Simulated assay, not measured.
Amino acid sequence: MPATTPLIARALLLDMDSTIVNSEAVVERCWRRWAAEQGLDADEVLKVVHGRQGWATMAALLPDRPMELNHEDNRRMLEQETADVEGVVPVPGAPAFMAALAQLPHALVTSADRALSDARMGAAGLPMPDVRITAESVSASKPDPEGFLKGAAELGYAPEDCVVFEDSEAGIAAGRAAGMRVVGVGERAAAFGPDVHVRDLREVRVEALADGSIALHIAA
């Protein structure tokens, strides 16, 4: 990995889907099915589903639809997604990245609920962080910063001391709104203005510094 100026943090906040876990196949299957039920163009739906809780995506796509129907569909889709782990694998570099974080302050901040995060992290063979913020933990979906702010608070660090890892427009916006620096992961993230962009987690090396902080060495 080429030498770079490291990004220094006290704690890391990690999105799950498409950031450390590749669940794109499941997401596409479930949302294509929902789009067909609603008579929507599935390709257009898939452009906006990433990062948000399901009900928030539905509300954005069908603004005149009663919210109770969105919550009902969201519950049904969460059950389907939790049961379907075919094709769920770690993002390249994620196992080594998570192993490097094992003794360092970090949290999962995901729009998935606890059951879905258990299923996907387990299917990908990744360790669950001791601190996780899930759909049940917040009152607002990304791009609202609530989840990241709660993650930082639970870890005991100020927002400016945290670095977020995200893939989606909503997630990157949430990290920025929380006052945090953002590493965008994957091809999709590059378009949304993260502070740093990597193709995958093989381009990140984690170093624990003597003062307790974390140096993130990013491939050029």
Rank of each mutant, 00 (worst) to 15 (best):
M1E: 15
T5A: 13
A9G: 11
M16Q: 04
N22E: 05
S23N: 00
R29G: 12
C30W: 15
W31P: 13
A35Q: 14
Q38F: 11
G39Q: 01
K47S: 15
H50S: 12
G51D: 05
G54W: 01
W55A: 14
M58I: 15
L61I: 14
L61F: 15
L62T: 14
P63F: 12
D64Q: 15
P66V: 09
E68S: 15
L69Y: 13
Q80M: 10
T82K: 10
V85Q: 08
G87Y: 10
P92Q: 08
F97I: 00
L104M: 13
P105G: 09
V109C: 03
T110I: 03
D118M: 13
D118E: 13
R120I: 00
M121N: 08
G125P: 11
P127S: 04
V131A: 05
I133C: 08
S139Q: 15
S141Q: 03
G147S: 07
F148N: 03
L155G: 10
G156R: 02
P159W: 01
F165P: 00
E169P: 10
A170T: 03
A173D: 08
A174Q: 03
G175Q: 06
A178I: 01
M180S: 06
R181H: 04
V183H: 08
R188L: 14
V196G: 06
V196N: 10
H197P: 07
L201N: 01
R202I: 06
A210G: 09
D211Q: 02
I218A: 13
